[in-house]
Design a protein around this nucleic acid. Structure first.
Lengths: 153, 153
DNA sequence: GTTTATGCAAAGGCTTTGCATTTCA
DNA sequence: TGAAATGCAAAGCCTTTGCATAAAC
């Protein structure tokens, strides 16, 4: 799927979601979604704010926060809290499920994929009668580069 | 292991840690550790502050934050960020590894235990050359009770 | 024309920081 | 005695809230 197809697709999903919920289809909301899907990897509100400020759309931080809540609710973005209070976001559509490994020394975030997490998820859901919507799996530790540096010193 | 044995044990571990790091063994630090191990389940800084205030030890919030950092570093407590900015803590010694299931409707946090997470951890560590210190696995969803309530309405 | 969303600035909540005072080693 | 920890209050950071203005429907 090429970039514009993804954009068209998520714009349509968002539009349908807004209609279903009786929310208004404002230009700000679609512009934010568009910018979200132009991002690579993880980003925070401030980055999004900066990016949009330098383009034609100048939205307020309040609207960014509000819209991110909507996008979270219709599963078009995922929210992560790696460390500290701040939220990091990531587009969620057309990207395969993955989890994160965080180096506590340098702060870098890596991704990995393991199908066994799905099995655990199914077991837990069944055993506890839970409807599971999503999960967060973070491994914290020291990456190879930082390990080597620490060894030397 | 009875309660006082655990207390003795963690006090000794903390003492050794402080000596090894050249930190001072202040009464506040040991009193905080003691109160941490008197807690059941998850607690936040404010709860700890309140508990200690009503007893003989009256420590400042700043010292609580500082000491929790030390206890995190020597693995005597674990930190969780379930939702929002706030940190929740949990004693870590003599308690078996477990993970969390969070109901996004009522906010309740449940625990579960699955050995397969260890296997994933080993795979990731090996594949990425990471020294993994700990992990966080959160399943988010709707608990049985809330599911039933939502169904009815 | 209503009602909902936006934008701005102010307020909030948790955490960190600065600095004077105390205390451990 | 000197370096480090404590306590208090102030500052910081991200996020939420209130309210006047603008814009969907």
């Amino acid at each position: 799927m090429v970039m514009t197809e993804i954009q068209d697709n998520v714009q349509r999903i968002f539009k349908e979601y807004l209609e279903r919920k009786g929310h208004r289809k404002t230009p700000e909301r679609f512009a934010i979604l568009s910018e979200v899907y132009a991002q690579e990897g993880h980003f925070d509100i401030e980055r999004l704010y900066g990016r949009m400020k330098s383009k034609k759309y100048r939205v307020s931080r309040a609207t960014l926060y509000n819209t991110m809540d909507l996008l979270l609710e219709c599963d078009l973005v995922r929210r992560h809290r790696f460390t500290g209070a701040q939220s990091w976001f990531e587009k969620a559509h057309a990207y395969r499920q993955h989890d994160h490994v965080i180096c506590d020394a340098c702060g870098e975030v890596f991704e990995f994929c393991d199908p066994r997490i799905q099995q655990i998820r199914n077991s837990v859901s069944e055993a506890m009668g839970f409807r599971i919507h999503h999960h967060t799996l973070h491994f914290h530790g020291t990456c190879a580069t930082c390990s080597a540096k620490l060894q030397r010193s």
